[in-house]
Each structure stands twice: as C-alpha cells, then as structure tokens.
Simulated scan of single mutants.
Amino acid sequence: MPNYLPILLLWLIGSAAAGQVIKKDSSAADKNERPSKPRFIAELDQRFFYFKDRRQPLFSNSTNVWGARAGLLWPSNIKTGIGFYYASHAVDGIWGGYQAIGRRLTYATVYVEPYFYRRRYWELSAPIEVGAGRVQYSFTHADQAQSRSSRSLIVPLTVGLSVSLKFPMLWGFKPLRWFGVNLITGYRYTLRDEVVSPQITLNGLYYSISPAIFLDRIYADYEIWRKKHRQRKGKR
C-alpha cells in the first residue's frame, strides 16, 4: 500500500487544483460517462489472494497472482471480456503420505462488470467472473528421496467490488485524465477443486491496488482531436 501513496496524493492534489473547474461544470461531473459505441479495453490485473487455511489466521499471508483482462466496454456501461491468471507459491500440507511443497495455479475467466457509477472523477462497479483452469501440486516424501506432482481441474467463481479514482485534467493537459488508481476487493469460491487437505482450500478473499489507464477516454479525446483537425483542414 505505501507504494501507491504518491499516486493517491497526486490525485488529491489534482482534485484540489481542479476545484474551480468542477464548480463551473458540476452538472457534467455528476453525470455518468458513456462510450458512444462499444470500445475495446485491456488492462493488467495483478491481485493478491488469501487462500483459506483453517490452521492460520485469515489475513496471515497473501499470494501474488499475475493476470490480464481484455474485452469491450458497452454504451450501457457494462464491461464484458476474458481474463487469464497465474500464480506459483509454496504450500504446506500432507496428502497421501507426501508433503506438499508447491502449488501452481493457472486459469482463464469470462467476466461481466456492470457499472453503478461512471462519473468524471470516479467509478464504481461489480466484476463477476467464472473460469476454468488447473492447479498443480508438487510433493516430496518424508525421506526426501521421492517426489511427485498432481494436477486437477478447478472452476473458480469470483464476485467483487471495484472503485476507480480518475486524475483530473490540469492546466489544459488532457493526457493526465487518461490515468488513475483502481482498487478491487472480493471473494473467490471454487466450484470444483481437489485440495491437499480439508483444512486448505482455494477459496478466500482477494484485493488489488494498481494504476489504471482509461482507454475509453483516450478514444474520446482522439475523436475530438480528429474532428477538429478535419475542420481546420477543410477551411484551408
């Protein structure tokens, strides 16, 4: 979290500096932004998973999960698309006389993300995902002389809540408004998986704090620039 304090501070300073602009155009700031047509979106989606383990406190440790999403943002303010996620980390559990020492998780998802609000300076949405993939466990025997691995199918279901803070445009510099900060939290329930022991599951809470790029704003600003460019070219 401390790594993102400069980004949050920049957003707060920018919002204060843009206060006069907001007051002059408060009606626009209170309206939802909507793309004029379906827009392609793509984003990195790094998350931190808490895997449910009855032997440890709920928030005792987190696992870094790397991911990415791509899809469409519709004029109805709903995002749909696909995602892919990967994680590899150490585990501790007994399965069939073997000691589990590692877990590799890979899965793909389809998602729908309806927006409750898409305002000028912030957004609120609820990403819902269902996926399929596999988990691979690595094992070693107590005498360290034998090792093996085991793979199984997983079907995760994830429901979350996402908040995005958008940087305001300062001193007429539009590119600044293309960026912001995104915060997501939610719960992951695995519809099907084979676990090391009944005490350890793939279920659990997750969260994400990351920079955000708003491609729909880049599209909109480009269309405005292209329209003005054509008008100037036509007058020559």
Rank of each mutant, 00 (worst) to 15 (best):
W11P: 00
Y50S: 04
H229R: 12
L161A: 10
W95C: 04
E43I: 05
G102F: 06
R34A: 13
V135L: 05
N61Y: 11
W171Y: 15
L202Q: 07
T185M: 13
A108R: 08
I213E: 08
N77V: 06
K174Q: 08
V112T: 09
Q56S: 12
N32M: 01
S15M: 08
G172F: 05
S36P: 02
I224A: 13
G67F: 04
G133H: 03
V135W: 01
I184F: 00
T80F: 01
I209P: 00
P38W: 13
I82T: 11
I101Q: 13
L170G: 03
N203S: 04
F84S: 14
I13D: 13
Y107T: 09
V130A: 10
G14Y: 07
L161R: 01
A142I: 14
D30Y: 05
R104K: 13
Y117G: 02
V112P: 01
G67Q: 06
L12P: 00
I184G: 00
Q231H: 15
R54A: 15
A68C: 05
R39Y: 07
P114Y: 08
A90W: 05
A132K: 03
L176E: 03
R188K: 14
V130G: 10
I218V: 11
T140C: 02
T106F: 12
A126C: 09
R226F: 07
I224M: 06
S152C: 05
K174A: 14
L157S: 08
R217I: 02
D143R: 08
I154T: 13
S197P: 00
W178E: 05
A90H: 09
S210T: 08
W95D: 10
T185Q: 07
V91D: 01
Y50M: 05
I78P: 02
R188L: 08
I7T: 14
R177P: 00
R236S: 15
Q56C: 01
G14Q: 07
Y189P: 03
Y85D: 14
H89A: 01
K31S: 12
G204M: 06
K79C: 12
